[in-house]
């Protein structure tokens, strides 16, 4: 039996993604982003994102199918992000997926966005060994998960108690006069900076939990900049960016490695938009090597939101013989990570 051909649709935030996979083989990944429309607002505006999804979705599906060299009729199943995410944005993808499934008479899987972020790594590095620990970091979520069986069981170990890591990047970028989203410009500025220039606080660093806190860090950066300005001194953007980034990467990688040790797990997956950050990737590689942990990080283009990740998880669900979601399922903006798919 050949692996299932799955079309995946993602619309939980500001990226409209449609991907096509055959099992764990990536055939196409079409993305349309509304990020430029949100930039001047300093954050994603839900209504702007939803309007963009409506216009971008069908064209993205066309691009994905043509890049994959397959027709809609050949697709075995359709997968779509059911949550978590922005309610109005999710609803566009879910409604489109239901319509495609209905028109084609194909099974439909409403899947968990966070689990899809983990599943996507398999498109690059093959089947995920279990158990694994997954660190998911983006503008919307920062969590550590124990993965026993991707299609059936993901256990939350800890998550941020305030801001997501990506949110901290966005806020610090604003303080430094850098554009939204903050991840790429801070990463770029940090390249010429000294990561030891300021010893910013590492929230919850040694508290023994798998939880994170980035709100204090963001405030510490703001205070430091204000104090500097109060003395009439220029703000060394590269050094502050590097020091801030070091604090984030330090606490994320330390907690991830600790979680692996605590659960006797020797595989760590890092995914989500912040996993595209160069310092996080480098420090994680260093610490995992020291700890004897095999690190898996998808290439940056697959770390950010995309349709291929949804298709990848859909393919796992089909392969595991999981029954499709009912046609009347609801998009769920607060879908818990323990629900890998909507049944």
């Amino acid at each position: 039996m050949t692996a299932p051909l799955v079309l995946g649709i993602e619309s939980s935030c500001d990226e409209t993604g449609v991907g096509v996979v055959r099992g764990h083989e990536l055939l196409a990944d079409a993305i349309a982003s509304s990020v430029d429309e949100h930039a001047r607002f300093g954050g994603v505006v839900p209504e702007v994102a939803s309007r963009a999804h409506l216009e971008a979705l069908v064209p993205a599906a066309h691009r994905a199918l043509s890049a994959a060299g397959v027709s809609l009729g050949q697709v075995d199943a359709i997968a779509v992000t059911a949550g978590p995410g922005l309610a109005g944005a999710l609803l566009v993808g879910v409604s489109a997926a239901k319509a495609y499934a209905l028109a084609l008479g194909k099974p439909l899987y409403g899947v968990n966005h966070l689990a899809a972020h983990i599943a996507v790594d398999q498109l690059e590095h093959g089947p995920l060994p279990v158990p694994s620990v997954a660190l998911l970091v983006s503008g919307g979520h920062s969590s550590l998960l124990l993965v026993r069986d991707l299609a059936g069981g993901v256990t939350p170990l800890g998550s941020t108690i305030d801001d997501a890591a990506g949110e901290a990047y966005d806020k610090v970028a604003r303080l430094l006069g850098l554009p939204f989203p903050g991840g790429p410009p801070i990463d770029k500025a940090a390249r010429d900076g000294d990561p030891a220039f300021v010893a910013f606080p590492r929230g919850k660093y040694r508290d023994g939990t798998a939880d994170f806190s980035f709100s204090g860090l963001k405030t510490a950066v703001a205070r430091w900049i204000e104090a500097r300005q109060a003395c009439g001194l220029a703000v060394p953007v590269a050094d502050v960016a590097a020091s801030f980034q070091e604090a984030v990467a330090d606490v994320l990688t330390r907690k991830a490695v600790d979680a692996c040790r605590a659960h006797g797990v020797d595989h760590l997956v890092i995914s989500g938009g912040v996993a595209a950050n160069s310092r996080l990737r480098a420090l994680a590689a260093l610490r995992c090597e020291k700890a004897g942990i095999r690190l898996r990080v998808p290439r940056p283009g697959l770390c950010t939101d995309n349709g291929a990740m949804v298709a990848a998880l859909g393919a796992d669900l089909v392969a595991a013989g999981v029954p499709p979601s009912p046609a009347g399922f609801a998009a769920d903006s607060g879908l818990p990570v323990t629900r890998v798919h909507v049944s």
Binding site: L54, V58, H62, L72, V92, S95, A96, A97, A99, A103
Partner: peptide
């Protein structure tokens, strides 16, 4: 979006 996807 339902209409557009069905039509497509």
């Amino acid at each position: 979006i339902t209409a557009r996807a069905l039509g497509d």
